[in-house]
Design a protein around this nucleic acid. Sequence first.
DNA 1: TCTCCATGTGTAACCGGTTACATTCGTTAC
DNA 2: GTAACGAATGTAACCGGTTACACATGGAGA
Lengths: 325, 325
Amino acid sequence: MTTIKDIARIAGVSVATVSRVINESGYVNADTRKKVEEAIKLMNYSPNEVARSLYKRKSKLIGLLLPDITNPFFPQLARGVEDRLQEHGYRLIFGNSDENEDKELDYIRTFVQNNVIGVISSTNFPDSDTYLKLKIPIVFLDRTSNESPSVYADGREGGRMAAQEIIARGSKHITILQGPAHIKPAQDRFQGAVEVLEELGMSYHVIQTSSFSYAEAGHWATILFEQHLETDGVIASNDIVATAVLQEAHRLGKSVPQDVQIIGYDDIPLSSLLSPSLSTIRQPAYDMGREAARLLIELIEQDKVDEKIIQLPVSFVERETTRRK
Amino acid sequence: MTTIKDIARIAGVSVATVSRVINESGYVNADTRKKVEEAIKLMNYSPNEVARSLYKRKSKLIGLLLPDITNPFFPQLARGVEDRLQEHGYRLIFGNSDENEDKELDYIRTFVQNNVIGVISSTNFPDSDTYLKLKIPIVFLDRTSNESPSVYADGREGGRMAAQEIIARGSKHITILQGPAHIKPAQDRFQGAVEVLEELGMSYHVIQTSSFSYAEAGHWATILFEQHLETDGVIASNDIVATAVLQEAHRLGKSVPQDVQIIGYDDIPLSSLLSPSLSTIRQPAYDMGREAARLLIELIEQDKVDEKIIQLPVSFVERETTRRK
DNA sequence: TCTCCATGTGTAACCGGTTACATTCGTTAC
DNA sequence: GTAACGAATGTAACCGGTTACACATGGAGA
């Protein structure tokens, strides 16, 4: 590997001068600069970030912790984060936490060991010791904590919206699929929907689900219609489950949206390609990722940051699994 | 931050001894070890990987380069890679290349700058200088090079399979969606399908597509039926496009699979949740990721490795967009 | 002429680990 | 009694950068 010493030798200067050229710091004579730059080009040299990071006690690396990249909501987030960071010269160390606190802790530890300069995390444990003790900037993404910087969409409002829309479109026997108990955003949207149903004095049923996995989605859909065949409106916990419900309704010969309306959550990319295409509550996942990265960069590069808690709007995306008003 | 010096001071020994305890190398008296371990626990110390990495000239980091994590085929790959690496104590630096050579080059450079110990890449340019000159192990994933270690599924065979199955199930007017020209696996599967159609002397049409994006998928589907309304069999370039075709067929009042059969490619998780559920050629994405990670670890940790080129089998997944034989 | 300061460059300490080598001590073998 | 060796530990060099500091030079201003 070419090192700064090699460049110094070739250019006939000291390592300090080479360093000055690379970092455009201090005084360097124009001719000297030229010699150094030529040597750098000649050897195709690029400085070792590890050595830099050691002395400066900070790197160009940022840790990203997501529950499961396999859940189609998260690739959007990740891509948003990555795109923004990349523009600013930062790189990503990535891990899947499976919503598991131990795994999270382990990742955060190795992030720190690698001198990451900031962390973006979708965690259910924002108030755990691990995060409180972190001495580097952290942004919570899709999850919130009281005072900490975070970027999220309003789950409660999303849930309310779903309930309002499905009621406004005429469903009387609504069943809500309640997402996994340990995942906060899932509970927020559930609470929001329940609120509206209670406010309007509607009766409804709840099916409690314990995962967002593809494998089990069909299972919840089956149970739903087994237990509440009269259901004419389904508020799903996310688009995957909604898709499974759509499939099950189809299998049972129910037509959508005439017999059953279905509203999903997230607006994952495939939702618009289903037939009927899925009405859903959209979370601007890509933008959330980008915003989180922007906020983190601000926290890293500036002393004070105005807005530390960024809530992005959710919206109802009207497609074909709901009736026209 | 706690350093090895702090631990040494607290335990009343030298840094060398602390290092020996941490790394279980050399001689350490049992009592001394205990003192050091207590100091480590007391301070919740964990060694700085950056310093380690600098001296040893290698880290515990591995670079992963994928075209676009937002394409639902890749999260599976990534998860497979991550799971296996994580089990072995390695971490991932991740980047999206957008199939863009410059972006790739840039990532590879920063990977190297960060002393990554290996790289896994889904690239269309495996024979570029960048990769040839890399002095660390590299595994190509979902893409191949002549002699280099790689893990992939047989695209040509997959294409053949798709054509055979759709013909065996009675389609006479087949249209193939040809994936983006610059993406090799897409061309492989296309070639395979064409081969079979030619061998059997079937006539067919081709629609050339230029991306795998969700946004454009619907567009190709529209064009397909505009140009070849008589189509009774579609071999799609991947499951996303297949889903769009399914939607378009539905819109046109064609019943699937009676009027049109559709075969996708990849078997992304959502395929089984569509209605009708999508018949497709399955690539074992998660396993491909795991295998790539396993192979890379072998290359890193061992002198010689037997199998450097691993081809995983594709399979036809019969669901509801094809007729029964 | 002398002082002061901007410019330009080199030397060496430092970041936090690892490890080669030196040193000390106690035991064993001859 | 002493040579040889294993056990235990410390000192200091090293990894590849950055930067504080020292020093040299030359021109401007008093």
